[in-house]
Design a binder for these strands. Structure first.
Lengths: 173, 173
DNA sequence: ATGAACTTTCAGTAACTTCTGAAAGAAGAT
DNA sequence: ATCTTCTTTCAGAAGTTACTGAAAGTTCAT
């Protein structure tokens, strides 16, 4: 049935496009998110040229973003024996995707932020002025919150999918 | 002590700058995040002109971003009697900030994403091909995960700070 | 009505990010 | 050593987002 094929391709394109928009809103390069969506919904590994063709983008663009995705641990390089070319394959398990994104964002964004908060707190230790005290206090509260949330995130991300769901069920009924 | 004042201003500037960088990484306009940081660490309400001066930005820029922050519910307009001018004041409670950001992001980003996932899933209902089936399945898994996570977020965000902490303690000891 | 004090909008500009295409680099095949 | 196939890099172009400054709009007082 070829009408089915068309419907499938349509849905897939909508997904790729929307995933790209979402990515952009979250501070991820649009093309990178689109390639990710493309590979997540691919039934076979894809080469750089196939990605280029599917999204109508240049080699440089495809290359850079494929490599960035590998850096995020969201896709991996696959080689076929007898072929020199590299192929790419996406992690498809949702829970695993979540874990990797969580880990990377923590490393890239949360940890540096905590660093700053700690600096700012330390730099205003034992101040006399009301302003200084309030600032110091505010930094402390932010630090506590961020580090607490970050720890919770770690805990959840280090659980197995099934266990996390069960735990959530237990808590929230 | 004026050396203390300088140390305080320094720390505050570091915080404002870093909060801006963080915001940008999370898909929030840098200036908006900086104004937020500035107001969070202000001991008094500030006028548009004061914000302009503190960050050395234009009136248009200050105005737009102040109003956007009001839209996010992160700052509020305060009027002083006898004064026509508007002043701004930030929510300072970390937990409350978290709740508001969570609510807005859900509304602006999560809900539309869920919409797309549901569409894509529905559009590939009952497909025969392996590819179609796999796609449909993948959309289902993504939808389940996102909607589950979103519900959990809601639950947590609707708790009082103290209760949330206690709960977390109980779970993760 | 006019003016003063303030807020809002917006066209044009500046800054930044992403993308292209071509050239250079690597590595195996002959 | 040279060719072929593929990967990587990068300068400049295109596209996007954010910012400025000035003009228009609003509101209140006189």
């Amino acid at each position: 049935m070829n009408e089915e094929r068309a419907r499938f391709e349509n849905a897939r394109e909508e997904f790729v496009s929307q995933w790209g928009i979402m990515g952009a809103q979250w501070g991820i390069n649009r093309t990178m998110a689109q390639i990710h969506a493309l590979l997540m919904t691919a039934s076979n590994v894809m080469s750089t040229d196939e990605v280029m063709a599917a999204l109508e983008i240049s080699r440089g663009n495809a290359h850079t973003n494929l490599k960035d995705l590998v850096g995020w641990g969201l896709i991996r390089i696959v080689t076929k024996k007898g072929e020199r070319k590299e192929f790419f394959e996406a992690e498809k398990e949702v829970w695993e995707i979540f874990r990797r994104v969580a880990r990377e964002r923590k490393r890239r964004e949360i940890d540096p932020a905590l660093e700053t908060l700690r600096n700012c707190k330390a730099a205003t230790e034992n101040m006399e002025s009301t302003e200084g005290k309030a600032f110091h206090d505010q930094m402390g509260q932010l630090e506590d919150f961020v580090s607490f949330a970050s720890k919770m995130g770690d805990r959840v991300a280090s659980m197995q999918h099934g266990k996390a769901i069960k735990l959530a069920m237990k808590i929230f009924g």
